[in-house]
Nucleic acid binder design. Structure first.
Lengths: 108, 108
DNA sequence: TATATATGTAAGTAATTACTTACGCAATTT
DNA sequence: AAATTGCGTAAGTAATTACTTACATATATA
């Protein structure tokens, strides 16, 4: 069972969940109130998010508050950032990139 | 059928394909030589990548050369960048972010 | 022209995904 | 103590995914 951040954020519901709890930790019921699906479905999405480390849960009595571990997004950010020079017009950045990588531009 | 960039890059094989053709446009056979799966499977991955706009195909005789349209990655980059301030230590950046958004920090 | 090459696609399949309802359990409230 | 609340999870299901093999088509080569 693959459980990586790329797969976790592939689902639009899970991205919405992250948006929702980005600024404010919420418990599970509060999260599911924002969606047109069962609490159980949300619970299962949260499970996937915690399994890949994107969300952590803090128990408070019978409630579970979910919060985002943003640094996990860095895995995705880094993968994308290596290509940013190709879609911006900053050719200076490309030059920096190339020299930083000592012109080792061969893939694989 | 969902066909967005988030879903396209969720698959590790497709990310490898992008890595492979990032610096050098390759035809389909050249791409599949790098993988332990059938040419047909790679062809289907390429189809998904083209359907979401991440890859375009240029015909040359009987060959089809695949190249990455990097700016499509911007959709993902932007979604992630909004959270970058939360995982870097740059609190100045956070301040800038907050003021830039006029302190409208409520999700949804 | 016959053959080889490069590719697309249909059909089939096993595994995975994204849900649902039902149930159980722990914590809280009455 | 009994009822309510918050949550996790099992089981079932329909749709999707990631492959496979087989076949069709267009282009290039002998």
């Amino acid at each position: 069972m693959r459980r990586d951040v790329f797969q976790a954020i592939a689902d639009p519901t899970r991205r919405e969940i992250i948006n929702l709890i980005a600024f404010k930790s919420l418990n599970l019921n509060a999260i599911s109130e924002n969606f047109d699906m069962s609490r159980s479905a949300i619970s299962q999405h949260i499970k996937i998010l915690t399994e890949c480390g994107l969300v952590t849960i803090k128990k408070e009595g019978r409630e579970r508050f979910c919060e985002v571990k943003f640094q996990k997004l860095n895995e995705v950010a880094e993968w994308i950032e290596q290509y940013r020079v190709f879609w911006t017009n900053k050719l200076d950045a490309l030059a920096v990139h190339l020299s930083a990588n000592e012109l080792n531009v061969k893939p694989k």
